[in-house]
Amino acid sequence: MNPPISIRSYKKGDAGALADIYRKGVERLGPRAYRPEQVAAWLSIAPSARDLDRIYCDGRFTRVALDQNGAPIGFGDLAKTGHIHFLYVDPDFAGQGIGRALVAEFLRDARCQSLETVFSDASELARPVFLRAGFKCIARQEHAISRTRIHNYHMCFAVPRGSGS
């Protein structure tokens, strides 16, 4: 059974909890799909609370999933270009529909903004969430972080016309 959650916009005081969710997600879930050196490379680019606060004050749609006590358990963002940059869920709540709920919220935001396309560069772990939401996998992408090869997937969703509101 999925826990009761709510989703709201980012607030300035959220950044520390969101940075922790990012790190915990990579540390605990990353090894399910990536080698130890890849997880270490991914962690090397983890945003700090200050980084997240700076990023999330730039006008993008940032959503925070909250547990029944109001504590952040997931987050993500949708830029005005249609790019979903981050999508992270606390490992203690992984597999309970929180990522799916956040993506659905971004698709509503995209419709309201009359965006034609929403896209993301999804990890191996996030790819199934995007596929279930109707995204298409355009390409597997290989890149390097600190000389360590790692992959993700370019995912794309065509926002249906006439579905704003």
Results as ranks from 00 to 15, higher is better:
residue 53 D to I: 00
residue 6 S to L: 15
residue 133 A to V: 00
residue 136 K to H: 05
residue 133 A to S: 04
residue 35 R to S: 10
residue 57 C to A: 13
residue 119 F to C: 06
residue 148 T to F: 03
residue 62 T to I: 14
residue 154 H to A: 08
residue 105 E to F: 11
residue 115 L to R: 14
residue 152 N to Q: 05
residue 136 K to P: 00
residue 73 I to P: 07
residue 110 A to W: 13
residue 55 I to G: 05
residue 16 G to N: 01
residue 148 T to I: 12
residue 165 S to F: 06
residue 152 N to G: 07
residue 92 D to S: 11
residue 46 A to Q: 06
residue 77 D to C: 04
residue 64 V to K: 09
residue 3 P to Q: 09
residue 39 V to M: 06
residue 156 C to F: 04
residue 131 L to I: 00
residue 126 A to G: 11
residue 153 Y to V: 01
residue 110 A to R: 11
residue 137 C to Y: 01
residue 11 K to F: 13
residue 53 D to F: 07
residue 50 R to F: 04
residue 77 D to S: 11
residue 109 D to H: 08
residue 39 V to H: 01
residue 62 T to N: 15
residue 110 A to M: 14
residue 108 R to M: 11
residue 139 A to Y: 07
residue 37 E to C: 02
residue 136 K to A: 11
residue 48 S to R: 04
residue 160 P to C: 02
residue 154 H to E: 06
residue 29 L to Q: 06
residue 115 L to M: 15
residue 144 A to Y: 15
residue 63 R to D: 09
residue 64 V to H: 13
residue 27 E to C: 02
residue 56 Y to M: 09
residue 104 A to G: 15
residue 7 I to C: 10
residue 117 T to H: 13
residue 70 G to I: 09
residue 102 L to D: 03
residue 60 R to L: 09
residue 63 R to S: 12
residue 77 D to Q: 07
residue 115 L to V: 12
residue 86 F to N: 13
residue 52 L to F: 06
residue 24 K to R: 14
residue 157 F to Q: 02
residue 100 R to E: 09
residue 151 H to V: 14
